[in-house]
Design a protein around this nucleic acid. Structure first.
Length: 357
DNA sequence: AAACCGGGGCG
DNA sequence: CGCCCAGGTTT
C-alpha cells in the first residue's frame, strides 16, 4: 500500500495561484542574481519596504559583475536606509567571490552557495528553488510559523532540537512527484507568501486557510500559542557618550567604527564610555572647551542582547586639530551627504532630527 | 517595551 | 554541533 499523498505542496500551490504574490520585481525576470538580491534584502525586511530599494539597486548594479566591480561605499550608498548593513557587506564580498571562483555567476550548487557570506541553509535553498526550479526546502520565519502550527510543534522554533524537526518536515513536504522548474519556484514563493499574508503571527485567517482541515494547532485550539515565543531573559544595560562635533561650515565629524562588534565598519559619531575617555579623545582631535558641550536628550536603544543608553554631547563651530584631516577613519561630513552613508539607525535618527531644526 | 529573525562566529 | 551575538523594524 502506498502512503497517503502529502498534498501540502499542492494545496499551497493552488492557494498561490489565486492569492499569492505574482508581481514581485525579482520574479520578472527570475534570474539567479535577482533572486539572490531579493532574498538577502528580504531577510529582515518586509516586501513593501524592499521593493523600491530592489528596483534602484538593480538599476545601478544590473549584473553580479557590476556589483563586484563597485566599491563597498557605492554599495552601502544604495543600501542606505535599508538597515542591517552586514547584509550589504556580505553581498558585496560574495559577488567578488563569485567573480573569482564561479565565472561571475552564482553557483548552482548548494554547498558552494552555503560557502558564500550571507547565504545560509534557507537562503541557499530559496535561490536554487526559485532561480532554477531545483528541489530544495526553505525554512524562514514564515515557514517555521506555518509548520509549527500545521504539525502542532511546541518549543521555541529557533531552539536547535525544534529547528531540526522543522527542517525534517520542510523536506518531507517537498513535492514527491517532480514539479516543473517554474512550479518549484512558485511553491517556494507560495510558502513565504502564505506565512506572510495568511498564516500571520497574529489573527491568522484560518477561515480562509487551505490547510485548515489538517492543521493540528487549529484543531486543538492552539493557534494563538504557536509558535512558542522566545524564552525571556533580563537585558544587561550599557551607557555610552556620543560626541557630536560641528565645524563652522556645519559639517559633522564622523568616525568609522572598528571592523568587528556593534555597527562594524559603519560611519558613526565618536563614542566613549566615560567622560575621562571622551575628554581625552576630544583634546587630541579637537580645539575647544570640552565642558562647553550641550547635553542632548538620551537616546535609548534596545538590541536583542542588551540595552544601550546613549548620551549625546554637542559642540558647535569647533575646529579640528591640524593633525586631524579627513582620513580613512575620520571625516567631516556635510548634513546633505549623510543620507548616502550607512549610518546606524539611532544615529541617523539623532542627526536627522537635528537637521530639521 | 518586547518580539522577531537568518546568518556569522566561536569553542 | 550548540550556543551566543548582531541590528532595526513591527507590533
Amino acid at each position: 500500500m502506498s502512503a497517503a499523498p502529502d498534498t501540502f505542496a499542492q494545496r499551497l500551490l493552488d492557494w498561490f495561484d489565486h492569492s499569492g504574490r505574482h508581481d514581485l520585481p525579482w520574479q520578472h525576470p527570475r534570474t539567479p542574481y535577482r533572486v539572490w538580491l531579493g532574498e538577502i534584502m528580504l531577510q529582515q525586511t518586509q516586501v513593501k519596504t524592499v521593493m523600491p530599494y530592489f528596483e534602484r539597486f538593480v538599476g545601478v548594479f544590473p549584473t553580479l559583475p557590476d556589483l563586484a566591480k563597485a566599491s563597498l561605499d557605492e554599495v552601502l550608498a544604495q543600501w542606505s536606509g535599508l538597515g542591517y548593513y552586514a547584509r550589504a557587506r556580505n553581498l558585496h564580498l560574495a559577488a567578488r567571490r563569485c567573480v573569482e571562483l564561479h565565472g561571475g555567476d552564482l553557483p548552482r550548487d548548494y554547498d558552494a552557495l552555503l560557502a558564500l557570506p550571507g547565504i545560509g541553509r534557507s537562503t541557499a535553498g530559496a535561490i536554487l528553488a526559485q532561480a532554477w526550479g531545483d528541489r530544495f526546502a526553505i525554512l524562514d520565519g514564515n515557514v517555521k510559523r506555518v509548520l509549527t502550527r500545521f504539525h502542532g510543534i511546541a518549543g521555541w522554533p529557533n531552539a536547535p532540537v525544534v529547528e531540526k524537526e522543522l527542517w525534517a518536515f520542510a523536506q518531507a513536504h517537498l513535492p514527491g512527484t517532480p514539479l516543473s522548474p517554474s512550479r518549484m519556484a512558485d511553491y517556494t514563493q507560495a510558502q513565504m507568501d502564505f506565512g506572510a499574508t495568511l498564516c500571520t503571527r497574529q489573527n491568522p485567517a484560518c477561515m480562509l486557510c487551505v490547510l485548515h482541515s489538517d492543521c493540528v494547532a487549529l484543531n486543538e485550539g492552539r493557534v494563538e500559542e504557536l509558535p512558542t515565543s522566545r524564552p525571556g531573559k533580563p537585558l544587561p544595560e550599557r551607557a555610552a557618550l556620543i560626541l557630536l562635533a560641528e565645524n563652522p561650515a556645519g559639517e559633522i565629524l564622523l568616525q568609522r567604527r572598528p571592523p568587528t562588534g556593534i555597527w562594524a565598519s559603519l560611519w558613526s559619531l565618536p563614542e566613549a564610555e566615560t567622560h575621562e575617555q571622551a575628554r581625552a579623545w576630544f583634546s587630541t582631535h579637537l580645539q575647544g572647551d570640552y565642558d562647553h558641550a550641550e547635553a542632548l536628550a538620551e537616546i535609548p536603544h534596545t538590541f536583542t542582547h542588551y540595552r544601550l543608553r546613549m548620551h549625546p554631547l554637542r559642540w558647535r563651530t569647533l575646529a579640528a586639530r591640524d593633525a586631524v584631516r579627513d582620513n580613512d577613519d575620520l571625516r567631516w561630513v556635510a548634513p546633505t551627504d549623510l543620507v548616502s552613508l550607512g549610518l546606524p539607525a539611532p544615529i541617523r535618527k539623532l542627526l536627522g532630527g537635528l537637521l530639521e531644526k
